[in-house]
Design a protein around this nucleic acid. Structure first.
Lengths: 239, 239
DNA sequence: GGAATAATTATTGATTATTAATAATCTGCG
DNA sequence: CGCAGATTATTAATAATCAATAATTATTCC
């Protein structure tokens, strides 16, 4: 059922941050929503301290923006910034693919994602929600397999941000099918130990996803005109 | 004189974090030092809140490690982890070089770093401290010129961590000279708009720095035996 | 004497109440 | 209609306090 995006919950702020991150990524806190300490502390039954910590942590993750004396709002990413995120994501995902492909012990990981990727071939164009779920899961498995701590945590944070938009790209049946095909090709390259090819496939797919997502966004952005922070659309958290 | 490593100081915690980061990077808080809230709040004349925030922020930057109910210690990076950091750094610095080289408006940036890089040629092998200073400054200028927000801030954080060790690599006169030469080559490639070459030079230099720094560290690590967190070497902050 | 166990201590995690600082909003005056 | 100033909502920071926990020290029992 509800599988939290991250679950390293040890201390209170981390639990709160995980919950809020979930809501932001999943969409129930749309961009621009204000996250007011007082309301959140009421909802979670906690004092301001842990909430503050959680918000700071989300700021670092790029999911909320904190303005001094104005508080936290769900980051409203511009189309340009989304393109920038995907540009880096493409590079890092490429690096991830290369390192995995060149890892002598990659067989274990390959075994773990083989079935899900095969399943993606069948889901593509049929069950979008499930396809998205599996795709995100496979992505996460690959990232978590990295032995490089820094890349693992950084990529995880980057994916957390971009997955908000990858969802959009997968609205297109064509992109689903393309994505499925490329994942299969990536798996083959990794299995063959071809780092060069793996890097290229992964980067290309990421760029295609970016193009698809931004295409989608440019349409909707035109509709909603200027969000502009005015009084009319003062959004509040799900109090 | 004292040019703080980062100076985005707006709110109190950021000022504290900047000061502490400076001390860690510069070395006056060696790895393993404990950063005790009570002492710091006394020293800075602040309450615990802002200090906590600052420590959390440093944790995100990777400079301190926070263990629940045990507090913050200056991150003691293993040689393996340093290698990992540089591995990613090499990739991102390569990306940075490529994007700069492919930027039509790169002339402005080139003009800004031309003189410092020329100066590095002369300083190499003569004034290590000044060479290091200029090298870090040029690096920072390049990073700050990036239009991609995410890469800019991420790379800044990564450099903050690795600069602790780049210092070590520059202890070698040979590496200083090699470094100076490669920086000149990089500048030429950027000026010529050759993204491919720029990426390769930057990545290669970063890897060489990594090798030099780890060579250095492996020697010293063997000497200091196991740090091991025991009672004997319980380090305290500069109270 | 030595090892297991229990008390102590140092320090962080979290709460509560309060004050200060700030940005946004509202009000009334011209 | 527009602007100066009061008001309000909200965060920033302080202080005092208690709870939770890890590390250390003391104690007991064999």
């Amino acid at each position: 059922m509800s599988s939290p995006a991250i679950d390293l919950t040890q201390t209170l702020p981390e639990k709160v941050a995980a919950t809020l991150a979930e809501r932001i990524v999943e969409g129930s806190y749309p961009p621009g929503s204000r996250l007011i300490e007082a309301l959140l502390s009421k909802e979670f039954g906690l004092s301001h301290g842990p909430i503050r910590d959680a918000l700071r942590s989300l700021q670092h993750a790029g999911l909320v923006t904190i303005l001094p004396y104005r508080g936290a709002v769900v980051t409203d990413v511009t189309v340009r910034e989304i393109r920038e995120l995907y540009q880096v994501r493409a590079a890092l995902v490429g690096l991830r693919a290369r390192w995995i492909a060149e890892d002598p012990q990659r067989a274990e990981l390959v075994a773990k994602v083989k079935a899900p990727i095969a399943r993606m071939q069948q889901l593509a164009g049929k069950d979008r929600a499930e396809y998205t779920r599996v795709a995100l899961m496979v992505n996460r498995t690959l990232t978590e397999s990295l032995s490089n701590n820094w890349l693992r945590s950084t990529l995880a944070s980057l994916m957390l941000q971009t997955s908000r938009y990858t969802r959009l790209a997968l609205a297109s049946v064509a992109h689903q099918k393309y994505s499925a095909k490329q994942w299969q090709a990536l798996l083959d390259a990794i299995e063959a130990g071809d780092g060069e090819a793996a890097e290229k496939i992964a980067a290309t797919l990421s760029q295609a996803t970016r193009d698809e997502a931004t295409k989608f966004l440019e349409q909707t952005v035109l509709k909603q005109a200027a969000p502009s922070f005015k009084s009319g659309d003062k959004k509040k958290p799900a109090a």
